[in-house]
């Protein structure tokens, strides 16, 4: 059995490199609140309309009693519902996604709002949008022949504008 000293040294360096990467990623995950959806929360996708949370009237943006913003969205061939929502910039937003049919994925390009939407599960993701603007919401898992057409919009407003809009429409919507 023969292992060259050079080779041994290189093996140690490689181990060090791998350990370094693992370390960086662990720290990043711990301190930068990595938000991959891992809530393992089941739901019956066949009866969403009967569920309290994802009934049609309860979809979209909700501000709860503590002022947290929660967005509930349903993915179904071939769109995300509601088709257009408006949220404030620079604010933590909790997205809750469900599917009514097959597997979908959702990504808002240039942001980390990305998750798979698996029938039978609620995918919860936290994100925030630093810059106001009109963002497309794209389905990024092949879900059928109309997959290309599966997208919707999200409008990100300056915080103040958004708040003004909220107060003016209170009582009208919902």
């Amino acid at each position: 059995m023969h292992i060259d000293p050079l080779e041994k040294k290189w093996a140690q360096i490689s181990l060090g490199i791998c350990a370094l990467f693992v370390g960086i990623i662990m720290l990043d995950a711990l301190f930068h609140s990595v938000n991959a959806p891992s809530n393992v929360e089941t739901i019956n996708s066949a009866t969403l309309h009967l569920s309290e949370e994802f009934a049609e009237d309860n979809l979209g943006v909700e501000v709860d009693d503590d002022g947290n913003i929660i967005v509930r969205m349903v993915a179904g061939r071939y769109s995300f519902f509601p088709k257009k929502i408006t949220v404030p910039a620079d604010t933590k937003i909790t997205f809750r996604w469900v599917s009514i049919d097959v597997v979908h994925g959702v990504h808002i390009p240039m942001t980390n709002m990305s998750t798979m939407i698996i029938p039978g599960f609620v995918a919860e993701v936290e994100s925030s949008f630093p810059k106001p603007g009109d963002y497309p919401v794209l389905c990024n898992e092949y879900c059928g022949l109309g997959h290309d057409h599966m997208w919707s919009k999200i409008d990100v407003l300056e915080k103040d504008k958004w708040r003004a809009l909220q107060t003016s429409s209170k009582g009208v919507a919902k």
């Binding site: 990467f21 990623i25 990043d28 995950a29 991959a36």
Partner: peptide, 11 residues
């Protein structure tokens, strides 16, 4: 990378 993956997942 657990975190960076979100930017490119399924793109």
């Amino acid at each position: 990378s657990y975190a960076m993956n979100a930017m490119i997942h399924n793109t």
